[in-house]
Design a protein around this nucleic acid. Structure first.
Length: 268
DNA sequence: CTGGTGCGC
DNA sequence: GCGCACCAG
């Protein structure tokens, strides 16, 4: 067979392969979204999603996220922690996997190897112990951020445990968490995963009477201070990150709750 | 609980 | 790559 005959065939194979791969990616993503079931505005998982500053929102069964490709991590991860989901089941920790649902390519876990930083969960594995599937799903690289071990196992861990306490006490809470991806940041690994200088967590409770919010902003370092010392208004975090946290909420209520840095409604 | 490294197969 | 032992805050 001469070159004139073989080139069109090679081109055809290439086109089919690329199309097939794209189709595979879209099919996989669609499956993930459909697998969450019908979403309505009454479903808090959708209702309380923040805005994305990056244009790439990914839905998993147990949480949703907005991925920032330049920083190789999520700008936020959001999920509802229901009281009924609290569990002490001990699943083995699986290996981290690159999140294939991130179209631009989620970070490789190898970036973290020997970096000196923890692979810090944003949606904690401890919040998804109600099934092995949900637990394993938190071990996607789109759900982690580089964290100092003393911070992750220290005050950040304390805050995560407090969230579980509140989920129990207030019959569930909706959680949004992430690193502040602004300013000069150290990077790790060949993909230059950014190391945030601050981390935040925003909570809303709509299940125990009147709607209430609380937000935390923590420097990326361990601390022995009490958790309430890190409470700020939601507005403060919105200004820092450019994220609008509860856009679907009634405007008057949203404005009032997000301006407050009071923690009187939350039991420490 | 939150994580890590090293070793053998 | 996977399972397992062992370590740290």
């Amino acid at each position: 067979m001469n070159k004139r005959k073989i080139y069109p065939i090679l081109v055809l194979i290439l086109v089919v392969a690329v199309y097939g791969y794209e189709h595979f990616l879209k099919t996989e993503e669609a499956t993930i979204i459909i697998s969450e079931g019908k979403k309505t505005k009454e479903n808090t998982n959708e209702f309380f999603l923040p805005t994305s500053t990056t244009g790439q929102i990914v839905h998993h069964k147990g949480y949703s996220l907005s991925y920032s490709e330049p920083h190789e991590q999520a700008e936020w991860v959001a999920y509802e922690l229901k009281k009924s989901q609290l569990s002490n089941t001990n699943f083995d920790r699986p290996y981290f996997e690159i999140d294939k649902a991130v179209k631009t390519g989620a970070a490789d876990w190898k970036n973290y190897k020997n970096s000196g930083f923890d692979r810090g969960h944003l949606c904690p594995a401890g919040d998804r112990r109600y099934s092995k599937e949900a637990h394993d799903e938190t071990f996607l690289t789109s759900n982690i951020s580089p964290q100092e071990h003393n911070f992750n196992a220290g005050i950040w861990n304390n805050l995560e445990q407090k969230v579980r306490y509140w989920a129990s006490k207030y019959d569930g809470v909706f959680v949004v968490t992430g690193g502040v991806l602004k300013g000069n940041m150290e990077t790790i690994g060949y993909e230059r995963v950014a190391v945030p200088n601050q981390f935040y967590k925003v909570l809303i409770d709509t299940n125990s009477g009147k709607t209430k919010m609380i937000a935390f902003l923590m420097p990326h370092e361990n601390s022995n201070k009490p958790l309430y010392e890190f409470v700020v208004s939601v507005d403060t975090i919105e200004t820092l990150t450019g994220i609008d946290f509860f856009p679907e909420l009634d405007d008057a209520l949203e404005n009032k709750l997000e301006a407050s840095n009071s923690y009187k409604d939350w039991s420490f």
